[in-house]
Amino acid sequence: MNELDERPKPFLYAVVCAAGVAGDVGKLITMAQDRGWGVGVVATPQGLHFIDGAAVEAQTGYPIRSAWRSPGDPRPLPPADAIAVAPATFNTINKWAAGVSDTLALGILCEAYGLGIPTAVLPYVNSATAAHPAYQESLDRLRGMGVMVSSYEPHPPKAGGGADRFRWEEALELLGPAVDARR
């Protein structure tokens, strides 16, 4: 066995928010697994309603996390080597940038900065919410924290969402070099 074979596979947390494309998170999981990643899903409480939990758990081999565990309970996921927030909603982006940690997903994201975990965000917002000054300020703050932001352009409101333009693979494209540099 050579040195490369002995390295543990990197582990990705896919943080999933309540957005129309969230039901396709299996695409990100498959792409990550095909590249040798282990994957665990952390969903916002509302994000849980947008995904097929049984299918995601079968695909990853791990339970979906959405709530804090009780003291003494084992950690259900390995530590994250990287995090992809996909899809990321207006609400999550603004709370994360402000340091609000009122859900497990946001707690993980806020802590990731201090731990130096490479993090990519794929916003999925409409142009009306993206026009709010807080949104751009939040993206600027996240970039200043080292978060890698996707190139997705907001879709028109009430128009079905632009799911065809949502590039799940961009999360791995953004994270790849950062994870390689840490190894």
Rank of each mutant, 00 (worst) to 15 (best):
D140G: 12
G36D: 08
A159I: 01
L104K: 07
L139K: 07
P71T: 11
E170N: 09
E6M: 14
L4P: 00
T44Q: 08
G114A: 11
D180M: 13
A97F: 05
V15R: 03
P118I: 08
E173L: 12
L115G: 02
P156Y: 11
R167K: 12
V85Q: 02
T89R: 10
A171Q: 03
C110E: 00
T103D: 09
P123Q: 10
P71V: 13
P76N: 09
F90C: 05
Q46A: 14
A43L: 06
R75N: 13
R165H: 12
M145Y: 15
E111K: 12
K95H: 13
R143H: 04
M1D: 12
W168Q: 03
H155L: 00
L28P: 03
T44E: 02
A112C: 11
I29H: 07
P87Y: 06
W68R: 14
P156K: 07
E173M: 11
A14L: 15
P10T: 06
M1T: 12
S70T: 10
L12I: 05
N91T: 13
T60W: 04
D164H: 14
M31P: 00
G23W: 03
G23Q: 07
T89V: 02
Y113R: 15
R182V: 11
L175R: 08
I64D: 02
Y135A: 00
R7T: 07
I108L: 15
P133H: 08
L172Y: 09
E169V: 06
G40P: 06
A18T: 10
E57F: 09
A82V: 06
Y152F: 14
E57R: 04
D180T: 13
L77H: 15
G38E: 11
E57T: 09
P157S: 07
G107E: 06
V85K: 00
E3S: 13
P154M: 12
G40L: 11
V15W: 10
W37Q: 04
T44D: 05
N126G: 07
K9H: 12
G36Y: 11
E169F: 01
S138R: 01
V25C: 15
L175Q: 08
G26C: 10
K9T: 14
A163I: 12
D24W: 01
G23S: 09
R167S: 11
A130D: 10
A131T: 00
K158R: 15
V25A: 03
T60G: 01
A181H: 05
F90K: 00
A80N: 05
G99P: 10
I108Q: 02
V16H: 05
T92D: 01
A86C: 13
S70I: 03
R75I: 04
L106P: 05
G114E: 04
A58G: 05
T119N: 10
G23K: 09
W37N: 06
P123K: 08
G36A: 12
T89L: 08
M148W: 02
I29V: 15
E57P: 02
P78H: 03
Y152P: 00
R141T: 15
P156C: 05
Y13N: 01
V85R: 01
V39N: 02
D140R: 13
A84E: 03
G162T: 02
